[in-house]
């Protein structure tokens, strides 16, 4: 039988303990074990960004990360952004308002990257330039929108906060 290991972590604000196979990929753990299907899989090679989530404030590709590495960490997926009182985060509101969503398959990842980057900018008290915004989204592939509306939406977030 497999050697199972125990991991403790916070996911979308709740503490959790799970036993997993050490070789489990984080994206599979999130989608198949935790049933959080909002995180998407586009390539499993770290190339498309669809699987992006936030760990301790940093956006990462969950397909390139082993689940055991979230032990002791704070994980946020797309499901963790809104609250019952306020179901949409500012990033999500701006994505909608700027028409940044077509098929929506890249959207979860784009939102998570933008969220992490916006928190970082807020902490550093800076508004990124358009080129910096573009750069921050470089790891995301989107076949529908041509990126412009996504970049516009992200810029609107940084300006608003």
């Amino acid at each position: 039988m497999y050697n199972m290991v125990e991991i403790n972590f916070i996911i979308n604000g709740s503490k959790m303990t799970k036993r997993i196979k050490p070789s489990t990929l984080l994206v599979d753990f999130i989608r198949d074990d935790l049933k959080l299907k909002g995180t998407k899989v586009g390539c499993m090679e770290g190339e498309c960004g669809a699987c992006t989530i936030i760990i301790d404030g940093t956006a990462i590709n969950s397909c390139m990360y082993l689940a055991i590495n979230i032990n002791g960490k704070n994980v946020t997926t797309i499901e963790g952004l809104g609250t019952v009182e306020k179901p949409l985060d500012l990033v999500q509101e701006k994505m909608i308002a700027h028409g940044a969503i077509q098929c929506g398959f890249c959207t979860s990842g784009v939102v998570m990257t933008t969220k992490a980057f916006s928190e970082k900018c807020k902490n550093e008290d800076k508004i990124p330039t358009r080129d910096e915004v573009k750069k921050s989204l470089e790891g995301h592939l989107c076949r529908c929108t041509g990126y412009i509306k996504i970049i516009d939406a992200a810029e609107a977030v940084y300006k608003k906060q």
């Binding site: 049933k35 959080l36 299907k37 909002g38 995180t39 998407k40 899989v41 997926t77 797309i78 499901e79 952004l81 809104g82 179901p87 949409l88 999500q92 994505m95 909608i96 308002a97 028409g99 969503i101 929506g104 398959f105 959207t107 979860s108 939102v111």
Partner: peptide, 22 residues
């Protein structure tokens, strides 16, 4: 300009794509 009807579902990860069916 009118945002997509289902934009809220899609931006919150709630839309069920073929990959999400179980």
């Amino acid at each position: 300009s009118t945002p997509k009807l289902d934009a809220k579902e899609r931006v919150t990860g709630k839309s069920v794509y073929g990959h999400d069916i179980e």
